[in-house]
Design a protein around this nucleic acid. Structure first.
Length: 269
DNA sequence: ATGCTAACCTGCGCGC
DNA sequence: TGCGCGCAGGTTAGCA
């Protein structure tokens, strides 16, 4: 489920119920996530959540005793539950909040994580991240500069979190389609002009999806977590065998950098 | 330094 | 209905 827009939507949905509230109790039902949930996380019990923020696809909850760093992996979700709600299969972590709500982490595949970050430290998973795609630091010049002499496919390049964080498999395919760039083209052989166009499309597609996700915010607490908002605006993702919306050529799928990739062989060069 | 692969897991949909 | 297979929105560690 989670690409950057879903993570941002989650953050916006839960933060009003968490910020300036006290974490009364933390329950770990399944510590075996991508990395084991450290006992240190228990230090956050009794602490006030000063802020909830997002970095790439990570959600950070800051207190005076340190921060929780969450990642939703492929199948994770963070949502609020009310006291009576029974625990579901794959609910791995629960934080009881002093306002009566509980924060639940649910993740069938357990590719996500909950890490403890001490005050004054930055975990390596965060310190290695590249720029945020929705800031001015992310632009065509930036991509052009970092891609020189890189022979890897451009799709792999823009999905590299050390370069730019938060561009997942769906939006990589979609933005390359909009920019008319073949996903297999060498990153080092794309012009500045085309990188400028690509950067704009990445920003647009992410911002648009966040906007769409925002429409489900009002029922976020009880949301089943699958708004499906992006489905109708997809041009190539999952559309192999179907005609291109622009030129009618057949959309192709191909594994690039271990991930299935979708593109129009005619529009994208 | 850089680049590629394997690995972590469960659920779902499809073909037989 | 049931079973086996392939595939899935992510990302790091580790090896070549």
């Amino acid at each position: 489920m989670p690409e950057l827009p879903e993570v941002e939507t989650t953050k916006r949905g839960i933060s009003p119920y968490l910020e300036q509230q006290t974490v009364e109790r933390i329950k770990i039902y399944q510590p075996s996530l991508r990395w084991p949930v450290s006992d240190d996380i228990m230090m956050l019990q009794g602490q006030v959540i000063e802020s909830v923020s997002r970095r790439g696809k990570y959600i950070l909850m800051q207190t005076n005793m340190g921060s929780a760093v969450w990642h939703l992996g492929m199948s994770g979700s963070l949502r609020l539950s009310s006291p009576g709600e029974e625990l579901k299969k794959h609910d791995h972590v629960q934080w009881d909040i002093n306002n009566g709500w509980s924060l639940r982490y649910h993740d069938p595949r357990r590719f996500g994580c909950l890490l403890f970050q001490p005050v004054g430290e930055t975990l390596s998973v965060l310190s290695h991240l590249g720029v945020e795609p929705l800031t001015d630091d992310f632009n065509g010049e930036y991509l052009y500069r970092l891609s020189r002499k890189k022979s890897q496919p451009i799709k792999v390049f823009i999905m590299d979190s050390k370069i730019v964080t938060g561009v997942g498999n769906i939006y990589a395919s979609e933005s390359l389609f909009k920019a008319g760039i073949h996903p297999n083209r060498s990153a080092g052989r794309v012009s500045l002009e085309r990188y400028q166009i690509l950067a704009e499309h990445i920003k647009q597609v992410l911002a648009y999806s966040i906007e769409q996700g925002g429409t489900t915010l009002r029922d976020f607490i009880n949301a089943d977590g699958n708004p499906g908002y992006f489905k109708q605006s997809l041009n190539v993702y999952g559309k192999q065998g179907q005609p291109c919306t622009s030129c009618n050529a057949v959309i192709t799928s191909k594994v690039i950098g271990q991930r299935n990739s979708f593109y129009c062989p005619k529009c994208q060069r």
